[in-house]
């Protein structure tokens, strides 16, 4: 014969299972999605991997523009030197728009320290030459004739990466180096670097 306390056990068990199953509803965050919104460009991107993000871009270019201004060749120059951009070399495993780095450095120097350096639009040289030809031929008016300015320094850089991946995780180290090269002597008058390392581990569902 079963004793009543023992009899209650199956009921309690059943009740517990039912309650547990009833409460086990799946909760999904943001079922309706998230409306596009403005975020700080210096914040990490959603789902960012170990690659190059906007946060890195800001960190690197902020440091480089400050560093350029403090270099004696710029800080002590009597006349603001002219600078042209050379392509940045990408030797990492991440495909990127490489010119973003030099473009931001240029924009920062131009907006924050307008009188310290001057940039030459060598990337638009073809359009400039065409316009000059039209002016010289008298096809369009000209307020004054000017000579094309020569370059004092070239600004360039290189992104170099060291990447490793294994079952224990993914690691990406990127060395960002930037240089100012004297266009006459090839002397590197300034160089600075920033290094960023990121690590991560995939969800086990993908390992």
């Amino acid at each position: 014969m079963f004793s009543p306390p023992l009899l209650r056990l199956p009921f309690l068990g059943l009740l517990s299972v039912a309650v547990a199953l009833g409460c086990a509803t799946t909760t999904v965050e943001n079922p309706g999605g998230v409306e596009p919104r403005r975020v700080d460009p210096g914040s990490a991107s959603l789902g960012e991997g170990t690659g190059i993000g906007s946060q890195d871009l800001q960190q690197v270019t902020d440091k480089m523009s400050r560093s350029i201004l403090s270099t004696p060749a710029i800080a002590n120059a009597t006349e603001p030197p002219t600078i042209a951009l050379l392509p940045v070399a990408n030797d990492t495993r991440f495909p990127i728009n490489k010119q973003l780095f030099t473009m931001r450095i240029k924009a920062m120097l131009n907006t924050q320290c307008q009188n310290k350096v001057r940039f030459l639009a060598r990337d638009r040289i073809e359009a400039i030459e065409n316009e000059r030809d039209l002016k010289r031929e008298g096809l369009v008016g000209s307020s004054s004739d000017k000579v094309l300015l020569g370059v004092d320094y070239f600004l360039t850089g290189e992104l170099t990466g060291l990447s490793q991946a294994g079952s224990s995780g993914q690691s990406d180290y990127i060395l960002y180096t930037f240089r100012l090269i004297d266009a006459e002597s090839s002397l590197e008058v300034w160089e600075d670097f920033e290094e960023i390392k990121k690590e991560g581990l995939e969800d086990v569902a993908y390992r």
């Binding site: 999904v28 789902g47 960012e48 170990t50 991560g200």
Partner: peptide, 10 residues
Amino acid sequence: EASSAGDESA
């Protein structure tokens, strides 16, 4: 290339 850490579907 995105990190799957915290991926709800995973």
